[in-house]
Simulated scan of single mutants.
Amino acid sequence: MAMVDGWLIWGIAGLVYLLFRGWYDNWRGKLTSDEIAHYLHLLDGRSDTTPEAIERLRQFIEADDGRDFLMFNIVKANLTPVADPVSGAMVPGVSLLQRYARQFTPVLIANGGHPAIIRRKIGGYMDSWGTEEDPGWTIIGLMRYRSRRDMMNLVVDPRFEAAHPDKLAGTLATFSFPTMPMAGFYVGPRLWLALVIALVAAITHLLSLTL
């Protein structure tokens, strides 16, 4: 009976991890030319972008390698009262950014992404040259995208477009760019979740042997 329990426990643990990898990894490969044309067509006439931004986006998705990536974002939040795009009432600008995040994050997760790092700025530039003065950045973030296809699914999602006025009203300045890892001690969910699942399974197995 204990052997059966062990097989069941580790089988469930393995299944949970496989389901996670099925969601977390990109199994569809690189974007095709037809997909790229479709996404760019959906961006035609959008009021929340510019021709220059669409051109940079086109270059990025045409260079798709099928891998996941982290988007670096830096934001100067609007800390003063602004008009709510929905109600027209005066509200703190940062509250609109928070509302935008509440709408953006579920769409990101649904497309295999997640926030990797969110940090609040606590000081001025410590080391800089050849750059403009600090405009007063307040927040930096790294968002993990499963693939460039998933990023585009988010960009063209109506929920993302509907939430964009909150981002505009709550942000005084921002920029973002995609990044790939070079070095570091960041441990992604592929490893730490496997360790957590294995630990839970091992403890459960040991408890089943003693009961």
Rank of each mutant, 00 (worst) to 15 (best):
M3N: 14
G11M: 06
L15P: 02
L19E: 07
L19M: 12
L19P: 01
G22M: 06
N26V: 01
R28I: 04
R28D: 14
K30V: 13
L31M: 05
T32D: 05
S33K: 13
D34P: 00
D34M: 03
D34K: 07
E35C: 07
A37M: 02
H38L: 10
Y39M: 04
Y39I: 02
H41E: 15
R46V: 06
S47F: 05
T50W: 03
P51Q: 02
E52T: 10
E52H: 11
A53G: 07
R56W: 07
R56E: 14
R56Y: 11
R58W: 01
Q59H: 12
E62I: 13
R67H: 06
F69V: 11
F69A: 10
M71Y: 06
M71I: 10
I74N: 00
I74T: 08
V75A: 08
K76D: 08
L79F: 07
A83F: 04
D84V: 11
G88Q: 09
G88R: 10
A89C: 05
M90Q: 13
P92H: 06
P92S: 08
S95R: 02
L97N: 14
R99Q: 05
R102N: 07
Q103C: 09
Q103M: 12
T105E: 06
P106F: 06
V107T: 07
A110C: 07
N111R: 05
I117P: 00
R119E: 15
K121Q: 15
K121I: 15
G123M: 06
G124T: 15
G124M: 13
Y125I: 09
M126E: 03
E133C: 11
W137V: 02
T138R: 10
M143P: 01
R144E: 06
R149V: 03
D150Y: 04
R159N: 09
R159A: 12
R159T: 11
F160S: 11
A162H: 05
A163F: 03
H164W: 08
K167A: 08
A169C: 02
G170R: 00
G170T: 01
G170S: 00
T174L: 14
F177N: 07
T179G: 04
F185S: 14
F185N: 14
R190V: 03
L191P: 01
L191M: 12
W192Q: 04
L193I: 14
V196R: 08
V200P: 01
I203L: 14
L207E: 07
L209C: 05
L209E: 06
T210K: 14
L211I: 13
